Amino acid sequence: MPSDSKRILLVIRRLGLGGIEQATITLANALHHADHDVHLLVLKDTPQQSPAPGVTVHCQPFERQARKTPKGLALHLVGRTLLKAVLPGSGFVWQGLAVTPLFERFLAEQEAAHGAFDMILIRGQGAFELLWPFDDKRCWQMVEAVVGDYEGRQTQPRWLIRKLFDAKRVICVSQGLADGLSEHLAARDIALERCEVIHNAVPLERVRTLSEQADEPIPDTPFLLHVARLVPEKNPTLLIEAYHKAVEDGLDTPLLIIGEGSEQAKLDALVKRLGLEERVQFLGRKANPYPWMAKASALVLSSNFEGLGLVLIESLALGTQCIATDVPGGIREVLVDDQARLIAAPNAQDLAAKMQEALDQPVTVRPQWAERFSEDAVVPRFLRLIEPNAA
């Protein structure tokens, strides 16, 4: 490793196939390719994807290990029985008290054998909750989802929010998230030590390369495309209702949907009830959705919130215009300039209108809209936080 190489530990609860997991893999790979010593710690389950060779992966099921200790088992049983009823939502507090010592022991062993880490990044609330007592000036919590009160969601009591965020050093993946988090914490008299905004990186060249590797025929005729998990937070019901409204108003371009999830049966029934079987096609999950994204007339995103919106950046990297709902998070940081005119109010009528507008008056995508999120643009911002005088 070069003399200026840094040792960096990324911590995530699970390494599945979602957006946070993909962003973590991208960052780990980018740091490794920049000649840094990168370690990825997975706290639960078998990883479903792997980073580049050279990134060291540690799988440590600390939750399960903790329950094998007297203290951990006692906290688990008391938390699951008495405290679950008396203090709803507090389960992570007792888990964290048992898990964090195991993490600290792992960290000490690694550093004794290989040298100190220069930065520790804990990604996602699931990992925050398991490691909330951990206190180290090298540590940053990465906030990647909207925090706060919205859509009628019940927020946690103040004392639980304090456990997660009070006096912590936080990196938010969009300014929208940072603003929402700041407002949420200020209303509860909770103060962060520091808050930085660093967008997630996207491997733009990899996305472009994969877009040229179609393994099945893709229509040459115009189509709208939705790429997301079919889960409530992505609000695919709004997508179908808006598309139906657009069809009633004269739109004749088909809608293709890539993704799987808990809403599939509900969406199938809705498509049939609205008589859209010939116009809406569910393609399931695709390991490589990029050839479809490159050929789409527009990508449509109907989420209730987006931490940043990685699929929007990927779409822009392929020259495909985007339609998205104006919701909490980072949508307006991704869709800028002329592309911002295709941001819709989060209702069926306005989203339908933006579908038609995209087809009638398409946006010409500018390369710089995606380049802002390249690995080369993002990685140095993390490294600057390691500098001794960074403030």
Rank of each mutant, 00 (worst) to 15 (best):
M1Q: 09
S3A: 15
S3D: 10
S3F: 12
R14A: 05
G18L: 00
T26I: 05
A30K: 00
A30D: 00
H32S: 01
H39V: 00
H39Q: 08
V42K: 03
L43I: 04
L43T: 05
Q48S: 09
Q48I: 08
V57W: 01
C59M: 08
Q60E: 15
E63M: 13
R64F: 11
Q65F: 10
Q65K: 14
A66N: 09
P70Q: 08
A74V: 11
R80F: 11
L82Y: 07
A85P: 07
P88C: 00
G89T: 05
L97W: 14
V99S: 07
T100G: 01
R105Q: 15
F106Q: 03
L107G: 09
L107W: 12
E109D: 14
A113W: 02
M119Q: 13
I122C: 09
A127D: 03
A127P: 02
W132K: 06
D135T: 10
D135H: 11
K137H: 15
C139S: 14
V147F: 11
Y150T: 09
G152R: 07
Q156F: 14
Q156M: 14
D166G: 15
A167G: 14
Q175R: 13
L177P: 01
A187R: 12
D189N: 15
I190N: 08
A191D: 13
E193N: 14
C195Y: 10
H199D: 04
V202Y: 08
E205C: 06
R206Q: 14
S211V: 02
E216A: 00
D220M: 14
A228G: 13
L239C: 06
Q264W: 13
L270T: 12
V271S: 04
L274M: 03
G275T: 09
G275M: 04
L276F: 10
L276H: 11
V280I: 05
A287Q: 15
P289Q: 11
L299D: 07
L308K: 11
L308C: 09
I313T: 04
E314A: 04
L316M: 08
L318V: 05
G319T: 03
T320N: 10
T320M: 06
C322P: 06
A324L: 03
P328G: 00
G330V: 07
G330A: 05
I331A: 13
Q339T: 15
L342V: 10
A344K: 00
A352T: 05
K354E: 01
Q356G: 05
L359I: 10
D360Q: 15
R366F: 05
Q368G: 13
A370N: 04
F373S: 03
E375K: 01
A377W: 03
V378M: 00
I386F: 00
